[in-house]
Simulated assay, not measured.
Amino acid sequence: MVQTRKQMNSIAMYSPGKPVEELKRELGLDKVIKMASNENPYGFSPLAEKAMMKEMKNVHYYPEITSPVLTEKLSKHLNTSAHNFIIGNGSDEIIRMITRTYLNPGEEAVMASVTFPRYKTNVLIEGGTPVEVPMRDGTHDAEAISEAVTPNTKIIFMCNPNNPTGTILGKNELLQLIQSIPPDVLVVLDEAYYEYVHTDDYLQSLDYLEDFPNLMILRTFSKVYGLASARVGYGIAHPSIIQELLKGKEPFNVNRLAHAGALAALDDKEFMDLTLEKNESGRLYLESQFTRLGLTYFPTHTNFIMVDLATEAEAIYQHLLVKGIIVRPGHMMGYPTMLRVTIGKPEENEQFITALEQVLHEQVTT
């Protein structure tokens, strides 16, 4: 038998939210609500759909290697030089580019103990050492992260807002943290949920690119833009970092349909505004219902929320599956008494609360 690299021995395959089709087959259900993968329940922009359909006639041609049209449009959209951008097959591909480009075997990458798991996975694949810093009330501990940096540290990964907790690190704390990091350590701010943030206490990181040449920002079209399966993400950093990442980028990594959809999505402010308005309403509804049920939750700035059931959440998760509702159990993310719930459409949120209340009542009475 051919032996794998030793780094692969400590890595498991990524575990996504349970697919709707799989649950329907397993339990013979006709209707299933998926509130597990932080997808946009309102779909995606009609302008993007039209553009992707139009681009179908060109699928026999390879796309341009660096997605220059999307890069130029993003630069105007964000008022940042086009030389600061790299486009990826989802922002998780850019995470892979980062570890491939910058991490030598044995070097360290600092991250929170509960955060997006692909940071750790890619560090391990490259033979690096993940340094996991405990959370503080579901939030990044800036002081502890700064103290975890050693001469062997090469990268810091910060998911802000954080997945899976939905929390943010306040702008003053985050800025002080970035200022404390040596210039030879790459600071990666993953802002996949940036558009959902609803507070002024959030660092507008783009304003600091020139001040910190070791800063890199990640964003995506998968969440608020609703293009999750198209796979388009982007990184913003000093041109010197972008040029190094391009050396290891796979050719033709962003397909023509995805590129066309992303371009059009940037023009559809109406769709984005609708998504954000509906998400805010759903967040407030879920928070009010959790409070009514006596449940606590992390304050979220995303399109999902983590709620504490004060009991083993995996059993509740299984009971919800029987009722046709898919969420994410917290035991997979370091919080065994919590569920992570994607904020859905109003009727989905209501059905979830009804089912959750029934299950919790059954747990108490049995």
Rank of each mutant, 00 (worst) to 15 (best):
M13F: 12
G17Q: 00
M52A: 07
P46Q: 03
P41V: 08
D30Q: 05
V32H: 06
D30R: 02
E55Q: 15
G28Y: 07
S10M: 14
E26D: 11
N9E: 09
R25Q: 15
I33Q: 00
E26Q: 14
S15M: 15
P41S: 11
L29P: 04
P41G: 09
K18D: 03
K24H: 12
S37C: 08
E39C: 07
P46A: 03
Y14H: 11
M53I: 13
E55A: 15
K31Q: 13
D30H: 04
M8W: 14
S45T: 01
K6Y: 05
N38A: 14
N38R: 10
E49W: 02
K54M: 10
A12L: 03
E26Y: 01
G28L: 06
M35C: 08
M8S: 09
M8P: 00
G28F: 04
S37W: 04
V20S: 02
L23A: 08
M13K: 12
K31S: 14
L29I: 06
Y42T: 00
M35A: 12
E39N: 09
R5I: 11
G17A: 09
Q7L: 01
K6R: 15
N9T: 01
Y42D: 02
A36P: 00
E49Y: 03
S45Q: 04
K54F: 11
V32M: 04
S15F: 12
S15Y: 12
E55S: 14
E39K: 11
P16M: 11
L23F: 07
L47E: 13
M13R: 14
L29C: 05
A51S: 14
E55C: 11
K6A: 09
R25G: 08
K24Q: 15
K6P: 02
F44T: 06
M53C: 11
S10N: 15
K54V: 08
F44A: 07
E21I: 01
K31D: 13
I11M: 02
Q7K: 00
N9K: 06
M8F: 15
Q7R: 08
S37D: 15
M8N: 13
Q7N: 15
M8I: 01
P16G: 12
K50G: 03
E21C: 00
N38L: 10
G28Q: 05
M52W: 02
S15V: 14
G17K: 02
K34V: 04
M53Q: 12
P16I: 12
K18V: 09
K50F: 07
A48I: 03
K18N: 05
V20W: 00
F44E: 05
E22W: 04
M52Y: 00
K54D: 14
